[in-house]
């Protein structure tokens, strides 16, 4: 069974007909030729297929393309603006945060989404519950970064570089979020 859907990927609008069984990952890679998101496990376990879906980081291997009809997708390839690399991409290069590079597009999208979550005041499992209850934003130390990035595996074990790259990018681009200045938490649901 087929469905006609619209996806905006890295700023370009596409209309396509998909088999309802197609995942968003396969629609991006096979139907649209957008190969930045990678297929690692295909079961939500590795994070290599991570993109920003309507602004939030998600794995695309467990999302049906038909359920994502109308969505806006940003992949690692769409983060660069006007030929300039995104600060997260710069930081990954500066810190040698990859070896084979297979997990990297997913790591970078996840890290960008993660910094937005931290800037919105979201706690993590590493955030002390008292601080979380008071609405304090976690300072993104290595423990916080590791916990918030645990959905992205790297088989080359480039974790040391990944953690320092993200810490660096956090300081560069989200100074407010990383400095512990409280900001109102994002509300759940629609307003």
């Amino acid at each position: 069974m087929h469905a006609d859907i619209t996806l905006t990927v890295d700023g370009r609008r596409h209309q396509l007909r998909v088999d309802t069984r197609t995942t968003l990952l396969d629609a991006l890679r096979e139907d649209l030729g957008v190969t930045a998101p990678k297929k690692g496990c295909d079961h939500g376990q590795c994070g290599s297929c991570t993109v920003l879906l309507n602004g939030r980081r998600v794995v695309t291997c467990l999302v049906l393309a038909v359920a994502g009809d109308g969505a806006e997708v940003v992949t690692a390839a769409g983060l660069a603006e006007g030929g300039d690399l995104h600060p997260m991409q710069e930081a990954f290069m500066d810190h040698d945060a990859f070896q084979c590079g297979y997990c990297t597009p997913g790591q970078i999208c996840s890290a960008v989404g993660m910094l937005d979550e931290a800037a919105a005041g979201w706690p993590s499992a590493a955030t002390p519950p008292r601080a979380s209850a008071e609405g304090a934003v976690a300072e993104l130390d290595d423990t916080e970064i590791r916990e918030r990035m645990s959905g992205n595996l790297c088989r080359c074990g480039a974790y040391a570089g990944i953690v320092s790259a993200i810490g660096d990018a956090a300081r560069r681009t989200h100074a407010a979020a990383a400095s512990g200045i409280p900001r109102p938490a994002r509300e759940g649901g629609r307003r």
């Binding site: 994070g47 996840s110 989404g113 706690p123 499992a125 955030t127 609405g135 990035m149 509300e187």
Partner: peptide, 26 residues
Amino acid sequence: AHPLIRRRYPVLSQALLSGASGQLRN
């Protein structure tokens, strides 16, 4: 991340945050 849950039912916030990954929880 909801303020009501973090303030009044932190055990629920903690349990959710201990499960799966950031991408899956979204």
